[in-house]
């Protein structure tokens, strides 16, 4: 494997972390050395506790991503293609958009409880807006000629939406999903910190209260790695789903 300058930077920062704790530059029990952190992480991975929690968190994140993403795409399509829906619901969406997610948690708890429905809804809400915005932009940028092309062949509006507009807007929609993915993991963990015993978030709270800094940082390191892996995985998926877009873009350039 080729070691890039980015890798060197990360290795350097990690070495700085280890040294700062070992040599007492940062002198606090809440600043454990990297080696201690990794040992704690390995220990809780080995017992199977963390893997189970990670799976739970990923499940909740995935469910929220799917629900919020689907809603975002459908709403975006409806807004762009059926002007009446945009006139009816556009204002509502614009009013809800700027509300920070933490502010909607109390009413969500009231209506949905403290379990998965609430947590998944929090994630779904987070995902909904970037996907909606990008879907709208993507649909509005679709070539009018390609839509007229569908009409001249007698292709109906639903099929046009599914086979012309949606694929054409897919690069923009996927860009929205990429933004949403980064937020979704964070919000899942935050939602799990509110209540309940499941997931990475609850583990973070528990370890914080138990004063176990190595475990806490271990899970933070894990989250960073998980976020990175998810993004890489998504980019790989994106390259397969819209290979034509990357290829056509290169041809055009």
């Amino acid at each position: 494997m080729r070691i890039t300058s980015g890798t060197w930077l990360i290795l350097g920062l990690l070495a700085l972390w280890e040294a700062s704790a070992r040599l007492g530059w940062v002198d606090s029990p809440n600043w454990p050395a990297l080696s201690q952190v990794l040992a704690a992480l390995a220990a809780d991975m080995a017992t199977g506790e963390l893997p189970a929690r990670i799976c739970g968190s990923l499940w909740r994140m995935g469910a929220g991503l799917a629900a919020g993403g689907l809603a975002g795409v459908l709403t975006g399509l409806a807004f762009a293609l059926i002007p009446l829906t945009a006139r009816l619901f556009g204002v509502v969406v614009e009013l809800l958009r700027p509300i920070p997610v933490p502010a909607v948690i109390p009413p969500l708890v009231l209506f949905l409880g403290l379990d998965d429905p609430m947590k998944i809804t929090v994630v779904a809400l987070t995902v909904f807006f970037p996907v909606l915005t990008n879907t709208l932009q993507g649909v509005q940028a679709v070539e009018p000629d390609s839509i007229a092309m569908g009409r001249t062949f007698g292709i109906g509006p639903l099929r046009r939406a599914g086979f012309i507009i949606l694929p054409a807007a897919l690069p923009a929609i996927l860009a929205g999903f990429r933004v949403a993915l980064a937020l979704a993991l964070v919000v899942t963990v935050v939602a799990e910190m509110i209540a309940g015993e499941q997931g990475i978030g609850s583990y973070l709270v528990l370890m914080q209260f138990a004063g176990r800094a190595p475990e806490m940082y271990g899970v933070i390191v894990l989250l960073a790695a998980l976020g990175y892996a998810l993004n890489r995985g998504f980019v790989a998926l994106e390259r397969r789903l819209i290979a034509w877009w990357y290829a056509a873009g290169r041809e055009a350039a």
Binding site: D145, S146, A148, M149, I242, W245
Partner: peptide, 13 residues
């Protein structure tokens, strides 16, 4: 109808 701009009416995917 055959379009003036073929590149816009063909589906690149």
């Amino acid at each position: 109808y055959v379009f003036q701009q073929y590149s816009r009416s063909l589906l690149p995917w």
